[in-house]
């Protein structure tokens, strides 16, 4: 066991997978010589060469399309879209090509493509660099979508993503790279579709993922002092989503708050609430409550930005609401 940060965990996962499998290769802007704008790919081009760690022109649709072709013809490409806001540019390649190819070729083609996409808000990077598009891709059959947050999960899930024969959207929170955690030595994977219970509780289930799962744990700690016991679930994997864990927690608490960092409208929280109602309406002793950002572009101004990013206070408020029987 050693304590490393998310950046190092990602770097280790990439290195180990490239060492183990010569078909793993990477593409993206500034990932090679510079080691990536966030330093995630530092040292990898030096170790594996410019053919396997390719710097590309600033053309997301171009290198995404190239990666789809590479994946279809035997390589296991990992590409970086920085920031995830530019997924808009390569959405045709992802939605119409990568997500459909295995299906439309009757399973005769694999699509082992990983799209790393730093997402989330914070740090005053304004409306075009603060978005969270996980719900867009959650909507598309043929994709897998994950958003791990701890160094352990980040490393294990990136390895699982690289070994998966389906296109995987790998959302890294851009404010998480410095976050530290224990990671074991040696090879391990964190399988998709299995949520983690970060904190056990009896009164309310808080469903969360990525950065807001950390805030949910902080909120739960404070709510404990108010006598409210919260069970915090970190989904880790969004598609597939571990509804078994979610529903068995709700069977215990009968109350649920679903958190996302993205603005609420059309978001994942709404979709999760709908699924909860489909699966266990009779388990609910109160209407589910969603936590998310207001439906506005993320402000650049630090004060306004802080108001818009859902935080511990918003989660506590939601929990109190779901407990109020109002």
């Amino acid at each position: 066991m050693s304590e490393i940060n998310v950046r190092q965990a990602l770097n280790d996962a990439l290195r180990e997978e490239m060492e183990a499998d010569p078909t793993v290769m990477m593409m993206g802007c500034d990932i090679g010589v510079r080691g990536g704008p966030f330093g995630v790919t530092l040292g990898l081009q030096k170790q594996f060469g410019a053919k396997r760690v390719k710097d590309t022109p600033i053309s997301e649709p171009g290198y995404t399309g190239a990666a789809v072709g590479a994946a279809a013809t035997g390589l296991r490409p990992v590409i970086e879209i920085l920031y995830s806001d530019w997924l808009t540019l390569c959405t045709d390649q992802i939605v119409n090509m990568a997500a459909k190819m295995r299906y439309m070729f009757g399973g005769k083609v694999n699509m082992p493509l990983v799209i790393r996409a730093p997402f989330g808000a914070g740090g005053g990077v304004a409306a075009q660099h603060s978005q969270s598009f996980e719900a867009w891709f959650n909507h598309i059959p043929g994709l897998k979508v994950v958003a791990p947050i701890t160094p352990y999960d980040v490393k294990g899930m990136l390895k699982a993503a690289i070994r998966d024969d389906n296109p995987v959207m790998f959302f890294e929170h851009k404010r998480s790279y410095q976050m530290k955690g224990e990671v074991p030595e040696g090879d391990y994977i964190v399988p998709f579709g299995k949520a983690a219970i970060r904190r056990e509780g009896t009164d309310v289930t808080i469903v969360s993922y990525s950065m807001i799962s950390i805030r949910a744990q902080n909120a739960a700690k404070e709510l404990e002092k108010e006598g409210i016991s919260c069970e915090v679930i970190d989904l880790r994997s969004i598609l597939p989503l571990d509804y078994e864990t979610v529903m068995s927690s709700i069977a215990k608490t009968n109350r649920v708050v679903v958190c996302q960092e993205a603005n609420l409208r059309g978001g994942l929280a709404g979709d999760i609430v709908a699924e909860i109602i489909d699966r266990g309406f009779d388990l609910l002793d109160a209407p589910p409550v969603r936590v998310g950002a207001p439906n506005v572009p993320m402000p650049y101004n630090a004060g306004l930005e802080a108001i818009c990013i859902p935080d511990e206070e918003n989660i506590k408020e939601a929990v109190r609401k779901v407990m109020s029987n109002d």
Binding site: N254, L284, S324
Partner: peptide, 28 residues
């Protein structure tokens, strides 16, 4: 609440006879 409704049904209780802990709140 759905859970309260289901529980009342299982116990054979008439929900119109139930009342919340505080007036105006939902029956749980």
């Amino acid at each position: 609440s759905p859970l309260a409704k289901k529980t009342a049904k299982e116990l054979g209780l008439d929900i119109s006879k139930l009342s919340p802990e505080q007036p105006g709140k939902r029956i749980t």
